[in-house]
């Protein structure tokens, strides 16, 4: 089994990872410009407002692009576009990862990293 490196958590991203430990996917939303962004920041990358709130996300989306590494055990590198949010760099894991298609529906599945911190990966369906 491959090692999943654990995220470096810092004060700016602590709340995101606290929610992740409860398997809740939070997506930053800007109260001023009304747009979501990724990766999470304290300052909105669209308008520079600091009124950024983490909002719960359903964790469903579609594959924007992907790559499969031969011999890599059980995962595809992917960009997933959330149905109501930004596009995330992630992995698609589990059954169906090896026959992935662009546009395919996927949903979040938190997966423990080396130190136990869950990271948002996705599964088909």
């Amino acid at each position: 089994m491959r090692k999943i490196p654990s995220p470096f958590v810092n004060p700016e991203t602590q709340a995101f990872w606290d929610a992740a430990r409860q398997h809740r996917l939070m997506v930053p939303f800007c109260e001023d410009c009304g747009r979501t962004h990724w990766y999470p920041r304290a300052i909105c990358p669209h308008c520079m407002s600091s009124k950024v709130e983490l909002k719960p996300n359903a964790g469903t989306g579609r594959v924007y692009s992907f790559s499969i590494v031969p011999g890599a055990d059980g995962y595809a590198m992917a960009y997933v576009q959330l149905d109501d949010g930004p596009t995330l760099l992630t992995n698609v894991i589990g059954e169906g990862h090896a026959t992935l298609k662009i546009g395919q529906a996927v949903r979040v599945q938190f997966t423990p990293s080396e130190d136990g911190t869950p990271v948002p990966m996705f599964v088909v369906g």
Binding site: R2, I4, P5, S6, P7, F8, V9, N10, T13, W17, W38, Y39, P40, S65, F66, S67, V69, A72, Y75, M77, A78, Y79, L88, L89, T90, N91, S113, V119, M121
Partner: peptide, 17 residues
């Protein structure tokens, strides 16, 4: 880094996308 490194990005699998 925290939002990418856990997923194993490499030069090749990223350009491949």
């Amino acid at each position: 880094l925290a939002f990418e490194y856990p997923f194993g990005p490499t030069v090749v699998n990223m350009y491949a996308m």
